[in-house]
Design a protein around this nucleic acid. Structure first.
Length: 106
DNA sequence: ACCCTGACGCGTC
DNA sequence: GGACGCGCCAGGG
């Protein structure tokens, strides 16, 4: 059955993979798209370390803040990657978050 | 097998 | 307008 519990994580990974370069999304938006709690998205991202194809650095919280930056190899990796893709970050927060925001249903 | 904790977000007091 | 609780899943001790 495609409705296993772990399949939920797979769906989350699939969405994160679809985030275009230079764009970001939020835990809440993704969670809403896969019909789960935003928290679960965070849990999934934590486990996403084993998935090299999952750009977890493009996922931020609803404020556009890089809440998960401490989970990368270095706290600067997330910010550096975003800047390199054209997403300006200041004070651990994505600038023009509303503009850079990518909707999963888009 | 149990208890705890951890990348969030919203409603309510 | 700040603080608190709840929902939800998995892995570690």
């Amino acid at each position: 059955m495609a409705t296993s519990k772990s399949d939920l994580y797979e769906r989350i990974y699939a969405i994160v993979k679809k985030i275009p370069k230079g764009r970001v999304s939020s835990y809440g938006a993704i969670g809403d798209y896969v019909s789960t709690s935003p928290r679960v998205v965070g849990y999934a991202m934590n486990a996403a370390h084993t998935r090299k194809d999952v750009p977890a650095h493009r996922v931020v919280n609803r404020n556009g803040m890089l809440t998960g930056k401490h989970h990368f190899s270095t706290p600067y990796e997330m910010e550096e990657k975003l800047k390199k893709e054209g997403v300006k970050v200041k004070n651990d927060t994505v600038i023009d978050f509303e503009i850079k925001f990518w909707d999963p249903s888009s």
